[in-house]
Design a protein around this nucleic acid. Sequence first.
DNA 1: CCCCTTCCGTACGGTGACGTACATAGAAAT
DNA 2: ATTTCTATGTACGTCACCGTACGGAAGGGG
Lengths: 239, 239
Amino acid sequence: MSETENGNSTLRGNKLFGALDEGELERLRPHLEVVALELKQVLYEADKPIEYVYFPIDSVSSVIATMEDGQAVEVGTIGNEGMTGLPVFLGAKTAPLTSFCQIPGKAIRMASESLRAEVVPGSRLHELLQRHTEATFVFAAQSSACNRLHSVEQRAARWLLHTHDRVDGGEFALTQEFLSQMLGVRRASVSAAAGALQGEGLIAYSRGNVRVLDRAGLEARTCECYRVIRREFDRMIGD
Amino acid sequence: MSETENGNSTLRGNKLFGALDEGELERLRPHLEVVALELKQVLYEADKPIEYVYFPIDSVSSVIATMEDGQAVEVGTIGNEGMTGLPVFLGAKTAPLTSFCQIPGKAIRMASESLRAEVVPGSRLHELLQRHTEATFVFAAQSSACNRLHSVEQRAARWLLHTHDRVDGGEFALTQEFLSQMLGVRRASVSAAAGALQGEGLIAYSRGNVRVLDRAGLEARTCECYRVIRREFDRMIGD
DNA sequence: CCCCTTCCGTACGGTGACGTACATAGAAAT
DNA sequence: ATTTCTATGTACGTCACCGTACGGAAGGGG
């Protein structure tokens, strides 16, 4: 990646860096590198060392819990509001769960040791990462309840909204097969849910591409869990 | 609570304090108070300030996500291996979720400001709480997947095992009604699941009291999620 | 151009859990 | 002892989602 892409305006594409003052950003800059993440690129595998943390710019990453029989369910997503590799921030050397890139794009990469050495208690980024840790926990907690109580269609709408919040243009690559794995349901169930949402003109999709047509309509169709999580993430940077 | 109950042997009943050296424990002691928590005593309410954090000794607390219609699902439990009020550790002043006491007993209480002032980066307790934060996240994440993929009976068995790990004597108060709320299912579903487990001689219960008769048998009946979570919590103190 | 792969629609029987409701039995209260 | 309350057993119809399977349609590569 060339040095020109390492400019402040690019770095500030991640909201955490966007909230830093010039001095702190300059201080960290030597430790940062903008990289491109490819679809389904694995960032961490369970129980393996975490070499880098990533601050997404226009990419989105997923954290998934994998069962012994291979079944997997998404338990968290990280976009330009956060950082992947939170366990490093919490002092761990290995990842507890698997992570991979869900929407390809750019991200800011930082070595785990640099994060530990440079992002010291008292710094603004340290404080932001603490808030981000809490927001990520709330995401997992609310999703847990949501998985228990709400329908496939509501959860699918929620997933689409979370992703829509993090990409430009309101359109992104997504197959029903992929979404079914994220939600932990059959593809056929996603087909039914997506068909219903499309039938109401809320989304349009074809051959692995989705476009959100009516955000407000989608929000009306999903459960309150979207609002709860969204509010928590907004609060993270806001105050 | 009398001063005699504030002795080191009592304090070390919480594993976090049990892992501290004498010096650090002495330093913190003036800020600690042993209190009794009653069944269903509310510790935190969503969006309200957190005044104290609690380090359970022989009590167990639950964190629950509550929906607008009043439905609630447990998203985390904390026993003598941890601390309630993690958001304080992460810099928040208000609780994102509701917490209450699930198994009555003793806990060490500490004012939120004391935690912030005394548990400084670099201290042993600070490091332990970082690990605990990660373990709590893994708990929520694995539960999320578990809620999606596993049966009521498996989840009920997991809940019983988690609680059994944290109480003395292998017996504790628990009604089917209460467990059904924790799991987010009908009481009738719990009745069926519990009846099956009792029929196989794994547990015995009667009028709000449960006794675990066959731990190994229960572990064989639950899903892998129990082992994953248990391992994460063991690792927290171990290394 | 045709093949082949990917992606999506749909169907069918099966089932676990749902909402609801009622009955019983032990414990507590009077 | 009788009543009252709480905890548990159980039943019935309903439904969302499951596992599986097959066919069609859209694109990509040869």
